[in-house]
Structures are given as structure tokens and as C-alpha cells.
């Protein structure tokens, strides 16, 4: 019942596009046609990265803020390649472990001239890279106060997600499983609960490993997926990006289409009537 209530109603589902032209992702006053947000780290080389990002259909891509290597002769900045109009850049606060650091990184990212959006990520444990909830909440509060559009990486805990929404974040981004693990969606129930209870967009961030993970995640009704390692560490990142684009669309389409009930008994697909004696 509750999944029906939160379902996006569109009339445009024609079997070709996920839901016609009306099914778009609205986020912080912007409209995105793609529900896939791609990270830009860990690709074998910049050319593969660009080709994979294009194949993924992503309009929004994340970037990290780091020190310039002052002794390197080549320009490692990503702005040269991705700084044009093709992609909307979302700076992250990856590497931060305190609210203080996250606010500092967010300000540096804003200063680089791509607007006041930030993917807030405050990690509390080195091995699992699980989020530090209290630092995330504090950072979110300060950044929202400073006028940032905050997309907050968090765990799949409803109470934290509700607090983030209360603070005024632009999107709540629960993990499917730990960052870079490729374990897929570990707790679909929690993610569905989040989606059912929140009014702000829910974008699953981290953990998808392959296309079926992305599809299954989108089938829960979430608004989008942010992925990086699944693309960058595939043997063929460009082909995987194409698979992911289709999987995100397929999952979205299946969600909007409304799946059949699952039953623990068989129902024949061919009529029982008219069989020969």
C-alpha cells in the first residue's frame, strides 16, 4: 500500500523511455534526465573516464578536492577535461572525518567555481568507510546555513535520514553497501522505508557492483544512484557504463510499471480451459 502511495504518477510510459519525458529527477531546483550520478575516481586513464561517463548517460558527476602536486609537471586537474558544459560537477568532501574538515572542503569546492552544491561525506571508520552520523549532521547543518545544496551520504538508518531532511538537505544518500565494496543492495527493506518516509529525493550512494545491483536498487523506488567503483574497476568501464545506464532505466521503468505480486505457488501462464482429454 505504502509503495503505491509514493509512486510517481506519469502518463508517458510508452515502453521506450522509463516513463516518457515527464519522469525527471528534480534536485535543488535543477532537472536531470538521468538518474545515474557517476563518480570520476579510479579510472585507468582520463580517456576511458570520459568515454565511460558519456556511456553512462550521467549528467552530474562527482569530483574530489585535493592538494595540487607542486612538483608534478603535468596537470592532474580534472577541470580541463570535465569543466565544460557537458557535465554538472558535484564536489565531494571525501577524505573528511570531522564536520570542521567537511565544511572546509565544501568551501574550497565552491570556490573552484562550480556552484554551491556539495556531496557531503564524513567517514567515521577507516576499514568500512561507514559514515560518522553525528559529524555528518553537524556538517549538514552548517552547510545548509551557508546556502549549500547538500547531498548527504549516510547509512540506511531512517532516523538519521529524517534528521537530515529536517536540517534541509537537498537529497539523502543512503549506502547500498560500503563504498567500493560492490556488494550490492544489502538491505532493500531499509531503503524502501527511507523512500516511503522521506519527502526529499533519496539517492542510493555506494555499493552497487554490477548492472543487476543497480536495477534492483532502482526497483525499490529510489530517485537515483551514485556509483563510481562499479564503473571504474570494471574490466571494460565503457561497456559497464552502458550496462549501468540501461539497468538504472530498467529498474526505474519496472518500478513505475508496478511489478506483479510474488507468490509461493505456481500460476499457469497458459489457460487451463481447452486442454485435450
Amino acid at each position: 500500500m505504502s509503495t503505491q502511495r509514493t509512486k510517481t504518477k506519469t502518463d508517458g510510459g510508452d515502453g521506450e523511455r522509463p516513463a516518457g519525458d515527464e519522469d525527471v529527477l528534480e534536485l535543488g531546483g535543477r532537472t536531470f534526465r538521468s538518474r545515474l550520478i557517476a563518480g570520476t575516481g579510479k579510472y585507468p586513464d582520463p580517456e576511458t573516464r570520459l568515454a565511460a561517463l558519456r556511456a553512462s548517460g550521467a549528467e552530474m558527476v562527482t569530483v574530489a578536492v585535493r592538494r595540487v602536486d607542486l612538483d608534478a609537471s603535468d596537470d592532474a586537474s580534472i577541470l580541463g577535461q570535465l569543466g565544460g558544459d557537458e557535465f554538472f560537477l558535484l564536489p565531494n568532501t571525501a577524505g573528511c572525518t570531522t564536520a570542521e574538515e567537511a565544511v572546509r572542503y565544501a568551501r574550497l569546492g565552491r570556490e573552484a567555481g562550480v556552484g554551491d552544491w556539495v556531496k557531503l561525506e564524513v567517514v567515521g571508520d577507516d576499514e568500512t568507510l561507514l559514515p560518522d552520523v553525528s559529524e555528518t549532521l553537524e556538517a549538514a547543518e552548517r552547510l545548509v546555513d551557508e546556502g549549500f545544496e547538500v547531498l548527504a551520504y549516510t547509512n540506511d538508518d531512517l532516523v538519521t535520514a529524517l534528521r537530515l531532511q529536517e536540517i534541509g538537505v537537498t537529497a539523502v544518500m543512503p549506502l547500498a553497501s560500503p563504498i567500493g565494496s560492490g556488494l550490492g543492495l544489502l538491505n532493500p527493506v531499509n531503503v524502501r522505508i527511507l523512500k516511503r518516509r522521506l519527502d526529499v529525493p533519496v539517492i542510493v550512494d555506494a555499493g552497487v557492483g554490477t548492472a543487476s545491483d543497480a536495477c534492483e536498487t532502482m526497483e525499490q523506488g529510489v530517485d537515483g544512484i551514485l556509483m563510481n567503483t562499479a564503473l571504474a574497476e570494471a574490466d571494460d568501464p565503457v561497456r559497464m557504463a552502458g550496462a549501468m545506464r540501461r539497468a538504472v532505466e530498467a529498474g526505474r521503468m519496472a518500478y513505475l510499471a508496478g511489478r506483479m505480486p510474488s507468490r509461493e505457488y505456481a500460476v499457469p501462464s497458459s489457460p487451463r480451459e481447452g486442454t485435450l482429454d
Binding site: 563518480g39 574530489a64 592538494r67 592532474a76 586537474s77 580534472i78 577541470l79 573552484a112 551514485l226 563510481n228
Partner: peptide
Amino acid sequence: IEIVHFVGGG
């Protein structure tokens, strides 16, 4: 003094 820029990240 810190001099920073954007690099690839997720």
C-alpha cells in the same frame, strides 16, 4: 598556504 584543485573522486 594550501593550493588545491579538483581531481577524480566518487
